[in-house]
């Protein structure tokens, strides 16, 4: 009997610890939501910042983030899907395949600020792009590449073997099989992975800090070689470097909320898509 009550207590202790964790997540999100909402207005979203961010809106930062993320996904998606198709459909056990897998795991573990240094060394300086949308996008692309490869490969692996065998048995070539029978059924899985990658790219600060971002640019960038404002960087500067940091809390909370909603919205889309995908295809 004593044993039993001990087990009961321990389980409640675990439950309390878990709910403590869940509520701390809730507190963070609610705090940002609660204090950020009053700052949100149409002019906040659509105006340029004035008086170095103390007034006005964050439109150029939103646009900058959209540019950076679009560029990153445009570069990383084709490469990532192609790598995943190779790993899932072509790769044989061997040194090359092992090397590729090792490289992907390594890339996934590289700290984002190190990606920033790398982007600075390669894109900004060596290739002469300067601090620009292009350099920032490519740096972010390197960072999200492993996410996209891993998710895409999983999606390709989920397509049953029989589908490939049926196609090959009908005389289709390997590539025809992949293009017509495998890829169409893994599109949603691949999209889920890419969307998660987008979410990560949109929230990252350290890499763009070194390769693309500027704090105060009232005008939108005109070419890929221009610097941009970006939401995460804007929040960082407003919160830590602004001369009147304590007085512009409203602007800070507003920016944090927009960034949070953007990133969580992107992640939510991925989760919903994953759910639909699971329901649609039950092999």
């Amino acid at each position: 009997m004593r044993q039993r009550s001990n087990g009961f207590l321990a389980i409640w202790a675990m439950r309390i610890i878990f709910y403590l964790l869940v509520s701390s997540v809730g507190i963070i999100v609610l705090d940002i939501l609660w204090k950020g909402l009053p700052s949100i207005s149409l002019s906040f979203l659509l105006d340029s910042p004035r008086r170095s961010g103390a007034e006005g809106g964050i439109f150029p930062a939103i646009v900058g983030t959209v540019y950076l993320v679009t560029g990153a996904i445009a570069a990383a998606l084709p490469l990532g899907i192609a790598s995943a198709v190779y790993l899932s459909e072509y790769a044989k056990q061997g040194l090359f395949t092992r090397g590729v897998r090792f490289a992907i795991i390594t890339l996934a573990g590289v700290p984002s600020v190190v990606f920033g240094l790398f982007g600075l060394g390669l894109f900004v300086i060596f290739l002469g792009f300067g601090a620009s949308v292009l350099a920032g996008s490519l740096t972010l692309a390197c960072m999200i590449l492993p996410t996209i490869i891993v998710a895409s490969e999983e999606a390709l692996q989920a397509v049953p073997r029989e589908l490939r065998e049926a196609s090959l048995a009908l005389g289709a070539t390997r590539w025809q099989t992949i293009w017509r029978s495998v890829l169409p059924y893994s599109v949603s899985g691949i999209m889920t992975g890419s969307i998660l990658g987008i979410g990560r790219a949109a929230g990252e600060t350290a890499p763009i800090l070194l390769t693309a971002a500027a704090f105060f640019l009232p005008n939108l960038p005109e070419s890929p070689f221009d610097q941009v404002m970006a939401l995460p960087y804007h929040l960082y500067i407003l919160a830590t470097q602004h001369p009147e940091a304590a007085k512009v809390r409203g602007m800070q909370y507003g920016t944090a909320l927009v960034l949070l909603v953007l990133v969580l919205g992107i992640n939510m889309a991925a989760i919903l898509l994953r759910g639909r995908f699971r329901k649609k295809y039950r092999w």
Partner: peptide, 29 residues
């Protein structure tokens, strides 16, 4: 078929190249 396979191999090797480049450019600077 041949072209596709070569393209895919090249794409897959970018991960390896990228890891190499990261080390290279950090050390270069």
């Amino acid at each position: 078929e041949r072209c596709v396979e070569v393209t895919l191999v090249v794409a897959a090797s970018t991960s390896i190249i990228l890891v190499g480049l990261i080390f290279l450019f950090l050390f270069r600077e």
